[in-house]
Design a protein around this nucleic acid. Structure first.
Lengths: 194, 194
DNA sequence: CTCGTTTGGTAACGCATGTTACGGTAACGG
DNA sequence: CCGTTACCGTAACATGCGTTACCAAACGAG
């Protein structure tokens, strides 16, 4: 056997490069050459790890979801109460620092790229349903509400976080971190979830 | 003088074609040839009306905002009360039928295209601030709240509508019109704005 | 009617893209 | 220490892009 490459590490490196390029240049700049340059390699490596561009994007999309899932589970495990867990999990979806801001940009970018791509859209739907189920579980754990009330509150909360993150990255001056958190807290309080 | 062309009508036709292509094929498919084909003309006309691709997109973005502004003002004028106006204005931002669903897709598409384009981002910010001011004015008219409380409620509402529309167009099965409206109404009620 | 100007379709250009083919290289088994 | 084999950079290919140049036709003015 000749030398073995660390495939998962390379795939992660290339996925990170996809995120970087998407956040900096948008969907139009998301070319294989740009990704290779951001990853510090050539297009040869990219095309050896992935059969084509769409597979590269799908993998990067999957890994992004996996990363936020791990972060959210850590937040949930370290929370003092169900309500604290709910707030922490929702707050990490906002665009509060440079890292989460970048993630929000990437999020919107992927959603836009998915417009023409049924596979990416299916990925988005699956990820979003998992996210919605998690938040609804936290709402139920925090309140004991019947399913319908918990679901309505959940829909409102995830819509709010999704929208606030998008507004915030596009106009950070109008929606600084404190304003985003105040908006989230006011809504949680209004829904009796504070 | 030779023959005169109806420039505003052609610009509107081409802008509509931009929306159609963006909604159907996403940012990657948004080429001048595709726009020309959707408009039923050739690239020659497109490049005669606009100096380049970015100007075409900027005009289409401007016209989209103008259209929603007109629709929203009509809703506001025809509403029975400030609270009814607020609800109607917010509800038109959801993805409730095929037309508003398409508009939500186009909205996300433009936002993604703006990632790499400072001019489009500035356009987005200006439009969003006008939209936010309008909603805040309606909240104030409906309640007489002091500015800070009205602003927090406004941020929550526009974030919710923005996010719900995006979730709904990407997964209409999970977020049908009735669910979107129930979410909006529950949040309005929780904020004492019903 | 005729001339001059506007209109918008056709075709080409240069360039960047996704993808493929190829070749040098470095590591491991024997 | 050598041959084998996976690795991956280089370079080419066809295609489609934004943009430009050109020209036939349509119309109003004189």
């Amino acid at each position: 056997m000749p030398r073995r490459a660390d495939r998962p590490a390379q795939e992660a490196l290339l996925s990170r490069a996809v995120w970087d390029v998407l956040a900096r240049s948008g969907p139009d700049g998301l070319t294989i050459r740009a990704v290779a340059a951001a990853a510090g390699c050539t297009t040869g490596l990219v095309m050896h790890r992935f059969p084509n561009r769409r597979a590269l994007l799908a993998h990067a999309r999957r890994l992004l979801h996996e990363r936020t899932r791990a972060r959210v589970e850590a937040l949930e495990a370290g929370a003092a109460s169900p309500r604290a867990a709910l707030r922490a999990v929702l707050a990490q979806g906002l665009a509060l620092d440079e890292e989460t801001r970048t993630e929000s940009i990437v999020w919107v970018g992927f959603l836009a790229v998915a417009i023409g791509d049924e596979e990416l859209l299916a990925l988005h739907r699956a990820n979003n349903r998992a996210w919605r189920d998690r938040v609804q579980r936290l709402v139920t754990a925090a309140t004991g509400w019947p399913e319908q009330r918990a679901r309505t509150a959940t829909y409102g909360l995830i819509s709010l976080v999704e929208g606030a993150a998008a507004l915030a990255w596009a106009d950070p001056e109008s929606y600084p971190p404190g304003v985003q958190l105040a908006t989230l807290d006011a809504t949680l309080a209004a829904l009796d979830l504070a």
